[in-house]
Amino acid sequence: MISYLVFFACIVLILSLLTLGLNLQWGFTGLFNAGVVGFYAIGAYTHAILTASPQPQYLGNFGLPWLVGVLAAMAATALAGWLIGLVTIRLRGDYLAIATFGVAVSIQLVTLNWEPLTGGSQGLTRIGKPFAQLFETPFGFNLWFLGLMIVILGTTYWALDRVLLSPWGRVLKAIREDETAAVALGKSARRFRLEAFVLGSTLMGLAGALYVSFIGFVSPFDFLPIVTFQVWAMLIVGGSGNNRGAVLGALVVWGIWAGSGVAVTKLVPPSRAAQGAAIQVILIGLLLVLVLLFRPRGLIGEAAVVSRHVND
């Protein structure tokens, strides 16, 4: 039981990183990135290609150390975020959404079709795990990984808090709320947006690298659009514009996703499993609609920011 909870917590924390990255882009900057899974995939594959143990039929699989893979994954996603941002960032709202969505679909297709590098649909295995050889049981490794995740997520969370309270973060919010006013004050909206986009994408890339180094296997089927949807649902349910909400949303949505499966298994006999599974998905959909109906700003909404000079 504990072992499962540790595993579950690792997944939730990885998803939280994704949600935090998206929160920076959407919650604080207002960029509708519907291609979350694309950046996740770039991070994951960069790490996998660099750290997987060598195999003659693949171009990559360099067997490099775990840390190199993680850092390179972040660098590669930052670069990709910058390139994609350069082209798409001036698009607004739904247009940016569909453009980034298309980018994510294209990235997934590249991972599926570029077989010599990505292994195609066969995927890549034996991906670098951090200090895995020190642990004899999967529980030991998962526990260590959970500790690692807590440190990484904690650091990210703390750094994001700092950054958002800094002048840079305040400009982001200003642009989101009233672009004209911010531009009038001499801030380049485009530059700040692009920076937020790149930073958010980098976090998604980090999440991707951590996910594959936790699981040890990657294939294109890990990066279908449903993942983007799940991350968005986490942010919306938790409450966008609030990093605590982003983490809570990851816990609640993934908890419902996994927990409803357990509930259906307990309540429905195997002979009715197909119907039970359909009902499970219907329940997930209903819950999402209900949360939005009754808490349209998420479980934790954005904290109101009031100038401390307001009562002067």
């Binding site: 649909s121 995927g123 295995t125 049981t137 296997f217 990657v218 890990d222």
Partner: peptide, 14 residues
Amino acid sequence: SGVTGPIIASVTAP
């Protein structure tokens, strides 16, 4: 196989 692969790598084998 896209589901079987990660199950082997993260559950079955370890």
